[in-house]
């Protein structure tokens, strides 16, 4: 993230040197878009914070555990779809889950839905894409994550059932 900020700052400076007026116009456009999205963004973050509070590590281990069978995949997909956990938290967490005996294929479903499906961010997505497209995209991504998990299970020879 820091590298992204540095890169964009450098680009902005270059842009400014090349064309002052154009740059200011661009920045203004960007900031206006950001300001308009703030209320939705805040309410989404609030909902995410509350849901995340209830998704503790113990719950994850309990529902994604090795003996859980096919339910583990379904739970992994649902928990991943509902929560949004930033990468710097979710990967260490996934590491812990693997160490407690959660299979790699279940982890792949969890990580995929975590990143691709965001039930709580649908209001935000819908601001750009509309509800129809957002719901369809999330639904298909959910199925896609299960397919990824199934292929991973074949490769890692985990039993699905």
């Amino acid at each position: 993230m820091i590298s992204m900020i540095i890169l964009i700052s450098i680009l902005t400076v270059i842009s400014f040197v090349l064309d002052k007026k154009k740059t200011l116009k661009g920045i203004k456009k960007g900031i206006m878009m950001f300001v308009k999205i703030i209320p939705t963004l805040l309410s989404v973050i609030i909902l995410v914070s509350i849901v995340l509070y209830f998704t503790t590590n113990d719950i994850l281990i309990k529902y994604l555990g090795n003996e859980a069978g096919i339910e583990a995949y379904v739970f992994a997909a649902i928990i991943g779809a509902v929560s949004i956990i930033p990468g710097f938290i979710s990967y260490p967490l996934a590491g812990i889950l693997v160490n407690t005996g959660v299979s790699y294929s279940v982890i792949s479903v969890f990580i995929t839905t975590l990143k691709m499906v965001g039930i709580l961010t649908i209001p935000l997505e819908a601001k750009f894409f509309g509800y129809k497209i957002s719901l369809l995209r999330n639904g298909l991504a959910f199925i896609g994550a299960l397919i990824v998990g199934a292929v991973m299970a074949l490769i890692f020879k985990n039993s699905i059932i």
């Binding site: 993230m1 900020i5 842009s15 960007g30 878009m33 950001f34 973050i45």
Partner: peptide, 22 residues
């Protein structure tokens, strides 16, 4: 989350704005 958002989004939007004009 707020910290992540404050870091990530404004710069992304500025990038979007610059992309638009260039």
């Amino acid at each position: 989350f707020l910290k992540e958002m404050i870091l990530a989004l404004p710069v992304m939007f500025i990038l979007v704005g610059l992309f638009d004009v260039w």
